[in-house]
Design a protein around this nucleic acid. Structure first.
Lengths: 335, 335
DNA sequence: ATCCTTTAATGAATCGTTTTACTATAATGA
DNA sequence: TCATTATAGTAAAACGATTCATTAAAGGAT
């Protein structure tokens, strides 16, 4: 466990003062370092394998260049990991680094995480959830610019970025409408979530825009799993006037619907078209035929959040905007 | 952007010296602080909302209590996120914090990540991959105790922790054997990966242990996707002497096999039993019937790695063990 | 009255940088 | 020749904590 070389060691080896080394390393001090010296310092840095001590820098400069990223379970479960990718990409592009902590929906853990981050003087904090939902961030978050990602607060005064569920529902429905379908079934998620309400709303809007009437018998309430999709599809197809297309509230639901349709002898997409939601590659890509679905803007939300913080945290003010990002339709072969 | 209170501010408010505040906060200095003073300091800390500056602490103490976690894509894709969870849990239990960076399989990024971590004086580094494979960690990693997680190096001298693919293959096969199956098909992953080789080896071992002969016609090479499972299962079931059970190299493969079996009119598990591998909840839970499968020890590997580092990094020596952790069988309804 | 010990507290050095203010030498212009 | 201005560099303070060495006061013991 030997001591890492310091700027003083470099200075000694190069035969100059620490000040000069600092000037060379940070390209400041104007023309006050000769080319020869500059070169000598560079070589010494190389030879010693010198690496600046971030703690010392931070202590002096009071800028940690670190953004805290607190998440319920994104980093530990399959679903929304694009969020982290997007956030990290923008952070790195701007010379910031992300400090990620997984709290597992545990309040105690959230508070500890906030505490830990503030001790490390993060410049701002992102609070991200795996599913679009309402949250109440821990108090520590007020002490620094913060933004909610894929969630929002009832209290209002937090900036947040969430998917536009309504436009998502509309997009999915329109993908079926443009193919000429006029009777479109919808197997929704269990009600009570922004996703369920929003997607239903979008579905209705799309129909209305085409001058079609909303038929409640075409809307089933699934459970967000394949079993709900299975029974929902059975009900729809065995009814008096079955639909020619089904919009499923998420991909597992579509997976169940596939099952039902096949058992009933319908071919996808010839007899019945299916569109899912969430674009979970594991399902959408592996189903036969591959499932057309709508992708949540996870990556984009991650980018947006960090961009927002970098832009506004510098300026000191963080206006409580509620930004919504569009979902995009991913065409495969089920429509 | 106001200055956070320092230990000096606390001291002033409490009418004592910074030294005394430090003693109170860290519970050192023996009996050298009276109860009354102690209380006064505590209150001042509260009132000011004082939070120690980690940078200053670190600078003085040269202990960052931080472990670097470099990963190809775990934090950004669905598959192996349990690794992060396990790692983070143990880290927190030991008062360490994890600094996670996603490199997206990009060499440049890996080097930058290593550099960044060393600048922050991480005490050790974990290099984790999403799939079990061979890697060559960037040079920076040599400067600090490190361990490879879910991967290994041909160079040998790195400690690593990986899943025991052979025992995994054996476990899956045995799950079928104990139910009385004697002709067991195997749709493997594309060859060339530790997973493919190991699981096949395990399959063969399990058969041999039962005194059954290895029949090459029962082994198909899939593509790790549902399409490979579909065609593999078709071939197996349409052959002269079809198996009564199929072991699939991963869950998407099993998904394809389900499809084929259903088309051929076989019921699962009555006519043909199926077991998968990877325990991808999204598939295994949503298939009908739910898929019995083998889970990779992601969470446990994460724990193991951090434990190893904490134990050995302190001692200075990091012996290059290659630890293998068992996969566990997850019973659902397809067997 | 002197010496020793205990209790309660503090001053100052230290960690590794950055930055401000300063100095010494050389070159330039009048 | 002298004043001025670049040029090339350095000394020292500051950032916020910890810790070693020291001190001041009070309470015995002799």
């Amino acid at each position: 466990m030997k001591r890492s070389p310091t700027i003083g060691d470099v200075a000694k080896l190069a035969g100059v003062s620490p000040t000069t080394v600092s000037f060379v390393l940070n390209d400041v001090g104007g023309s006050s370092v000769s080319a020869r010296t500059r070169e000598r310092v560079r070589r010494s840095v190389q030879d010693l394998g010198y690496r600046p001590n971030v703690a010392a820098k931070l202590l002096r400069a009071s800028r940690s260049h670190t953004i805290g990223f607190v998440t319920d379970e994104i980093a530990s479960t399959p679903f929304a990991s694009g969020i982290i990718e997007g956030a990290q990409d923008v952070a790195w592009e701007n010379g910031k680094i992300l400090m990620i902590v997984n709290t597992g929906r545990n309040r105690k853990m959230e508070e500890r995480a906030a505490e830990m981050m503030l001790e490390r003087r993060v410049e701002s904090i992102i609070y991200a959830t795996m599913f679009h939902r309402a949250v109440e961030p821990p108090k520590g978050f007020r002490e620094v610019p913060a933004i909610l990602l894929d969630c929002y607060s009832e209290e209002g005064h937090w900036p947040s970025v969430v998917p536009d569920e309504v436009s998502g529902g509309r997009t999915a429905t329109e993908a079926l409408l443009v193919k000429g379908h006029e009777r479109i079934g919808f197997i929704n998620l269990p009600s009570g979530s922004p996703a369920a309400e929003g997607r239903l709303e979008g579905y209705a809007q799309a129909l209305e825009a085409r001058g079609l009437v909303f038929d409640a018998s075409l809307v089933k309430c699934g459970d967000g799993r394949s079993s709900g999709g299975y029974s929902g599809a059975l009900e729809l197809m065995l009814a008096a006037d079955p639909p020619t297309a089904i919009f499923c509230g998420n991909d597992p639901t579509a997976m169940g619907a596939y099952e039902a349709l096949k058992e009933l002898g319908f071919y996808i997409p010839q007899d019945v078209a299916v569109v899912g939601f969430d674009n979970q590659a594991l399902i959408a890509d592996q189903l036969r035929p591959p499932l057309s679905t709508v992708a949540l803007p996870h990556y984009e939300m991650g980018r947006w959040a960090v961009n927002y913080l970098i832009k506004h945290a510098g300026a000191g003010e963080t206006p409580p905007i509620r930004s919504t990002l569009d979902c995009v339709y991913v065409e495969r072969e089920s429509v």
